[in-house]
Design a protein around this nucleic acid. Structure first.
Lengths: 157, 157
DNA sequence: AAAAATATGTTGCATTTACAACAATATTAT
DNA sequence: ATAATATTGTTGTAAATGCAACATATTTTT
């Protein structure tokens, strides 16, 4: 006869915790990689720069929504990227409001391509034991999941 | 004729970034849930308590490896859980070394069950639009992936 | 037209976090 | 036996983060 505790469902066995733990490990590994390769950007700055390169002329608040940071820290990340010469910022209007828009600089593009080239092989090697089909399937499912989460979360950016 | 930039592979389109963003959203949602339900634990404390409940008599460093925090912060989380009366700590030996082991208290078990009951339905509803088979598949693939990551990461706990 | 609400960005602060240094003890090397 | 190394936990500190408050300007409400 089984004790009830044997069939208890634990949060730490859930997909939510698996997601968080895998993500934490991945983040640590990429941070270590950036240090080892002596890359002069943090992971957050890199992701922000990549996002700016895709969305030219985006304003700070919209960028904040993309990178899931609040306006304060988005501004700080952009301060750093601007100070390093990888983006330029300029005042413009959006819906008749004054906003700070931005674009990637020539040096920013160079830096981005350099980082991409440096890390591409290493990142690919991380999934070498996983069936590429599974990788795609996971990414698709995660995306669907994230869209659901975005409907539920109270964002106040 | 296509420009080269059209086929550039962006980090922000990779599974690594998708993983991080989905995890960040999930974390924010669960934190909001804990606040709304007036739960007297942080998510980290909850995960630690759940881990202790499964691994009775574990020592601090081993717990740190489970929850992927460093020893310092693991100790701080345990200070809080002990102060709230949800765990007990006691000195013992492991491999002839003095260690601080711990166990969950009666109140801790009650609190854990209470939280589980409170959040279970809500968490399940988050994946209601996803095929349960896909959820399982994602969890399995993430677990395989995490095991690979654990081989690569430089852990210094 | 005046007041209230909204949008955008910045500043300040309190919390979290990671990392290094330390203390205490045990093991291994010389 | 003594010195060097390793294990475990704690303390201190600097960086990252989120949240609230503020400043400015525009829109909406009354």
């Amino acid at each position: 006869m089984k004790a009830k505790s044997d069939c208890k469902v634990h949060y730490t066995d859930s997909i939510y915790y698996e997601l968080e733990q895998t993500s934490r490990l991945m983040k640590k590994i990429t941070a270590q990689l950036f240090t080892k390769l002596e890359i002069d950007l943090t992971m957050d700055e890199y992701a922000a720069l990549d996002t700016v390169s895709i969305n030219a002329g985006i304003c700070q608040r919209d960028l904040a929504k993309f990178i899931l940071k609040d306006r304060a820290n988005t501004g700080r990340i952009l301060d750093s990227l601007e100070q390093k010469g990888f983006i330029t910022r300029f005042i413009d209007t959006k819906n008749n409001r004054l906003v700070k828009k931005m674009g990637i600089t020539e040096n920013g593009l160079k830096e981005l391509d350099m980082i991409d080239a440096k890390i591409e092989r290493y990142l690919k090697s991380l999934t070498r034991t996983i069936d590429p089909k599974d990788v795609d399937r996971v990414q698709d499912t995660l995306k669907s999941f994230r869209i659901e989460l975005e409907k539920v979360v109270e964002i106040n950016i």
